[in-house]
Amino acid sequence: MIVGNAKPIEEVLSMIEPFDKLIVAGCNGCVTVCRAGGEKEVQILASALRLAREAQGRPVEIREVTLERQCDPEYVELMRPYVGDYQAVVSIACGAGVQFLAEHFSKTPLLPGINTGFIGVTEKQGEWSERCQACGDCVLHLTGGICPVTRCSKSLFHGPCGGSVEGHCEIDKEVPCGWQLIIDRLKALGRLDLYEKLRPMKSWKTSRDGGPRRIVREDLI
């Protein structure tokens, strides 16, 4: 999922300072699961903003909305009948959701209520970690199901660097060396041959280096 984290309430209050009539918009997708931008977080943020502004003597009217997904046009368009009645929208979806609302409602200021972190997994309740950097050319079948782009701090492709010490990365002793994880897993799978095989340099043209990416599926159009 895409994992996000709420912006400090002070920062959101600063963003909404010029406005008196707002929408706080959540998303039932990833940010609901990671407890950053779902229906409950919409309620909490809207209530906190109302309280803060009323205490300042400048009450704010807030409509609370949670779309099924802010990254799909069908759901975004559900806001069209009323979005023009409000001065701004605070979206607590991921960055994609915020931008998609902005694209659809060009006359309405869009304010991000969360910081989008990464594509990751739930380690346990309240703890998430990164697993994928969306490089666009997956090699997990060669690396024991562990991503060298994400799990190696340097995104190395041909084994650990000199900073790998007792299975940990030089950037932080709490961070496992991605390549140690890969080699251990390949050993466990009896597939160290995959590590020993020479491979050409990875092409990064499918990654961010080529600018904003697009996937077009002719069979679905």
Binding site: P8, I9, E10, L13, A48, L51, A52, A55
Partner: peptide, 8 residues
């Protein structure tokens, strides 16, 4: 924590 940060 929220109440503290918003001045309540």
């Amino acid at each position: 924590d929220i109440l503290e940060k918003i001045g309540i």
